[in-house]
């Protein structure tokens, strides 16, 4: 039995997990940095990560009931992400790899989101809607690569929700607060709806919604913002499914935790005779398990790196990664 240790530190989340080669998650522990005000400050977040690192690792190890000797490989999130945050995780991974003489694997964060989606949803050949604070992409596997078929032309959908929440004075994290406020929204306020083929654009929607803060109720604004932006995402996604002739949809990334988005995805798939494959919420947002699982696969295909060559890649593109499995 091979066991993998995964460390995720791309942005807010410091996550550590142990996963075995059957895809069983033995533990999945996280500590999330919460800014006191405003958006994420990379250096502040990395400070948090260094502070909690050892404690989170210890807790994950205890919950998994494993000894470091039993671990086959140490995987860390190599990018894309915020430099200082990535370096916090890389530093811990290198230290563990050197101390216990374990091979090191650098994992692409976006690939990891999709791989855990594959594993937990049981999908075989899906279209992925990858939605988080920093990413909005429609992706599918072609040959040995993940190919981006559609994406946002400006800001990510998570960024739209977070930025609106900040402007409205809602504390971090904005996404869940907007989801709950939206449940009491009644009136649909017209906001820019911009879909171009398989691409979307949210900056106009954000500006329009921000201008209405104080003029319309926050519940109606939250409701309209969600309905408009999520419908845009699903329209572009449906077009990609039709174009690629795919019958499965998997959502990956933190915005996937939004109930309304998943409900809309389910409806869209049902109406076109396709399947929306859902999985437990803890694997949507950033987590260590996705890094451990993807790292283990890479290890099995000999994709390890030396500590000297393990510098983080802030702009690590998903289509730069060859997927041999």
């Amino acid at each position: 039995m091979l066991i993998s240790l995964g460390i995720e530190t791309t942005a807010h989340t410091f996550g550590v997990a142990f996963v075995n080669d059957k895809g069983e998650v033995l533990s999945n522990v996280k500590s999330v940095y919460t800014p006191k005000e405003g958006g994420i400050h990379p250096r502040e977040a990395s400070k948090h990560h260094y502070e909690v690192a050892v404690g989170v690792l210890r807790k994950a190890k205890e919950e998994a009931k494993v000894k470091m000797e039993d671990v086959a490989v140490v995987a860390f999130s190599r990018g894309p992400g915020l430099g200082p945050c990535l370096r916090a995780g890389a530093t811990l991974a290198r230290a563990v790899a050197l101390k216990f003489k374990k091979p090191l694997v650098g994992v692409n964060h976006a690939v990891a989101h999709l791989e855990i989606g594959y594993l937990k949803s049981g999908a075989r050949d899906p279209v992925f809607l990858y939605v988080s604070g920093g990413n909005t992409q429609i992706i599918s596997k072609v040959g040995d690569r993940y190919v981006v078929f559609g994406e946002t032309e400006d800001i990510a959908v998570g960024n739209l929700l977070d930025a609106f929440a900040r402007s409205a004075g809602l504390p971090f994290p904005g996404g869940p607060k907007i989801m709950n406020l939206a449940k009491n929204g009644k009136k649909l306020i017209k906001l820019p709806y911009v879909v171009k083929g398989m691409n979307v654009s949210f900056s106009g929607t954000l500006t329009a919604a921000e201008k209405l803060i104080g003029k319309e109720s926050i519940e109606d604004l939250a409701y309209s913002l969600q309905e408009t932006s999520f419908a845009m995402l699903l329209e572009a996604t449906e077009r990609a499914m039709a174009y690629l002739k795919k019958e499965e949809l998997v959502i990956a990334g933190g915005v996937g935790a939004n109930e309304r988005l998943r409900e809309m995805a389910r409806t869209m798939c049902e109406e076109r005779g396709a399947r929306f494959l859902d999985y437990p919420i803890e694997y949507y947002g950033d987590n260590g398990a996705m890094i451990a699982w993807t790292g283990l696969k890479q290890y099995l295909f000999g994709d390890t790196i030396s500590v000297e060559d393990s510098k983080v890649l802030v702009r690590f593109r998903i289509d730069d990664v060859r997927i041999p499995w």
Binding site: L188, K190, Y193, E235, M264, E271
Partner: peptide, 13 residues
């Protein structure tokens, strides 16, 4: 018609 979009938005589009 798209069931995933709220009625008003779908009608409008």
């Amino acid at each position: 018609k798209k069931g995933y979009r709220v009625r008003e938005l779908d009608d409008e589009l």
